[in-house]
Design a protein around this nucleic acid. Sequence first.
DNA 1: GCCAATTGCTTGAAGCCTAAAGAAATTCGG
DNA 2: CCGAATTTCTTTAGGCTTCAAGCAATTGGC
Lengths: 163, 163
Amino acid sequence: MLDSETKAVELPEDHAEELRLWLRLLTCTTLIEGEVRSRLRERFDVTLPRFDLMAQLDKAPDGMTLSDVSKRMMVSNGNVTGLVERLVESGHLDRRTSDTDRRVQVIRLTKLGRAEFRKMAAEHESWIADVFADLTPKDLRELMRLLAKTKASAQKSASRRRA
Amino acid sequence: MLDSETKAVELPEDHAEELRLWLRLLTCTTLIEGEVRSRLRERFDVTLPRFDLMAQLDKAPDGMTLSDVSKRMMVSNGNVTGLVERLVESGHLDRRTSDTDRRVQVIRLTKLGRAEFRKMAAEHESWIADVFADLTPKDLRELMRLLAKTKASAQKSASRRRA
DNA sequence: GCCAATTGCTTGAAGCCTAAAGAAATTCGG
DNA sequence: CCGAATTTCTTTAGGCTTCAAGCAATTGGC
C-alpha cells in the first residue's frame, strides 16, 4: 500500500511503451504534414500555415480577431501578425480595426481568398482521404475515439503542470 | 460496376471523416509537442530539435552521418547542418570527417552531451507517461496498432504520388 | 474620474525549416 | 582511365515560430 504510493513518485518506472507511442504519433503527423506541405506548394504555390489560416477564416464568414486565430491555430500572437501581413499583401485577406475596440483587428477572406481556398480545400480533402485509404471505417472510428481520449488526457496533463 | 470505377475519380465523395481525423491527429501532436517544448525550455533551456538530434545520437554510440540524421529526423539536409553547428559550438557534439569518404561528416555525442541528454531523457519519459496517463494498457496497444496502420497507409500514399 | 491591471497586437532577436543551387568527393559505365 | 552521374554536405533566400518586451486601448476597482 505504502509501496504503491511511493512507487509512482520515486521509482523509475518503465514507460517505454508510451514513449514509442508518442514517437509513432509524431512520425505519422510529420509524414502527413510533409506530404500536404509539398502538395500545396506544387499545386498552388502556397504554404501550409497560410492554408491553415485561410481554413480558419473560411469557417468564420464574419471574420475573426487575431487572438481568436492565435488560439485556434495554437500558435503565438507574433506568429499570426506576420502571417496575416503577408496574406493581406497578397490580396487574400481583408483587415479592419474593430469599431468597438481599437486594439482589435478583424480579418476575413477576400473574394479572391475564399475562391482560392475553396479550390485548395477540395483537393486537400482528397489527399487526406488517400492518406487514410487503407483504414477501414471501423479503424477510422476507433482511431478517432482513441485520439479524443488522448487529447483529453494531454490537456489534463498540461493543465496539471500550469496549476 | 462502371459506376464504382468512375465514382472514385470523378464524383466528389464525402471524406469529412478522414479530414476530422487528420485534424484531431494534428491537434494531439501539436498539443504534446508544445508541452514537451516548453518543459524542455523551462527545465533544461534546450530546444526540441536539439533534444531530438541528441536522442538520435544517443542510440548510435559509433556516430551517424549528417545524411543519416536527416533521414531519421525527416528534415532537410540544410537544417541538420545548422543544428549540428550549434550543438558542436555548445560542446554537446563531436564532429569528424570520415576517413574513407571526405564528403562525409560523422557526428557523435560528447561526454557532456551524453550526460545531459540522459538527464533530460529520463524526465522526458515521465512527461510522456503523464500525457497518456488516462489511456488504459489496452488503449495504448490499440492506438499503437492503428497508428502503425496509418503510417503504412500514408507512406503508400506518398510513394504513389512520387511514382 | 483615476490609476492599476488586463487585453490585443506588434516588434525584435534568435532559432528552426525548406527548397534550390552549388561545391567537393566518390562511383560507375564504357 | 575518363567523364557523367550520384552522393554528401553547405549556402542562400525566404518564410515560419517562439519568447520576451513593449505600446496602445480597455476594463475594473475604488
